[in-house]
Design a protein around this nucleic acid. Sequence first.
DNA 1: GTCTATAGTCGGATAGAC
DNA 2: GTCTATCCGACTATAGAC
Lengths: 217, 217
Amino acid sequence: MADVPTRLRLLNAAIDHFGRLGLHGASTRAIAREADTPMSSITYHFGGKEGLYLAAADHIASEIANRAGPALEQVRAMCAEPPTPAVARNALHLVFAHMVGVIVSPETAAFARFILREQADPTEAFTHLYSGAMRELLARLAALLRTISHDRLGEQDSRLKALTLMGQLLVFRVARAAVLATTGWREVGAAEVDEIRRSIADNLEAICDRLEAGGQR
Amino acid sequence: MADVPTRLRLLNAAIDHFGRLGLHGASTRAIAREADTPMSSITYHFGGKEGLYLAAADHIASEIANRAGPALEQVRAMCAEPPTPAVARNALHLVFAHMVGVIVSPETAAFARFILREQADPTEAFTHLYSGAMRELLARLAALLRTISHDRLGEQDSRLKALTLMGQLLVFRVARAAVLATTGWREVGAAEVDEIRRSIADNLEAICDRLEAGGQR
DNA sequence: GTCTATAGTCGGATAGAC
DNA sequence: GTCTATCCGACTATAGAC
């Protein structure tokens, strides 16, 4: 902790400030102050404010890839040979149980703010974020859902369903204030994450049941 | 359109600018310019930047209450006498079919940005937003879910499930960029909204089936 | 690589004319 | 109610010392 390079200190401070205030709203002075380095070192390391912004996006993408990596790796292994619906179902549960922890964890809060803002008003940085971490995850989820449905679900339908499922997680990140107000929780700690995980697993079961049995779509 | 009072023009411009840039990031000069009035009229009408911000939150809350009103009214009517699970199920579908349109519509985009930002970093304005529109909706959803489950679902569990269900909608608003990238859509128009509505209705059916039959929770 | 100093722009608030 | 003029602070960028 004591010997973090200036470049990295700047990136961490940048993710925090840009996430809260946006590209325009954040100030390089404040970022530099938090990183305990003069403002002009931003020019030196990243060429300027926008360079720092893009570098922050790339840094987030690689950090997320690291965190989602273990779960994705496991799913890749389970799907090495074409999986049965039962195996796919297992894999789906695995991914979600893991993602709940990742998405709700305080360490990813700053990442989430940055990504959220970028989605609201996408710039060049969004491509970096999407290609870096989200695309494979969503594609894998969609493929699992299709398998579970015995391929009755169309490709587009399975992508849509993957998105709705991710939404069940997302709400606990992006609407945290409403979540706290509704549940009466004071924070989202380990006990609360378990409750969320159970509720979502329950929904997953229900949706998989219907998919596997063959509902009307 | 031609004769909108200055106060209202300022509110609309404020919602747009604050939603995109936040309280600090937005500039009263730019807001006033868009409202085609001098900056000092903000001082006159709202006392300053923060007064304008709070007024914008109140205005959003009442606009949302207007839009969600019809659906909520219908649900209230259906629940006048304690509803059967089948009636509750109908009501649930009704609310969601309506909310999909509301949440995804371009007119509410500015509202969504404002609320999103406020959730990420709640200020006094959040209370206004939550009490004004969200609370009753979430409470009604939770009550419907409980009824559907024959009261097997606990109060807290039903609130959590209401939140996960709202998440399925939310994702199409807050992660629009990812939605477009994943589906290949170029916009979320009427045809796309119908697909979303079908996918979510399908999930609802699945979850209600499980709830009504009595899953493990 | 790191820091200081400075130039030029734009921000919010306010006083006071009409 | 509406507008102009002005104050002062904060911002980004950059030149140049070490």
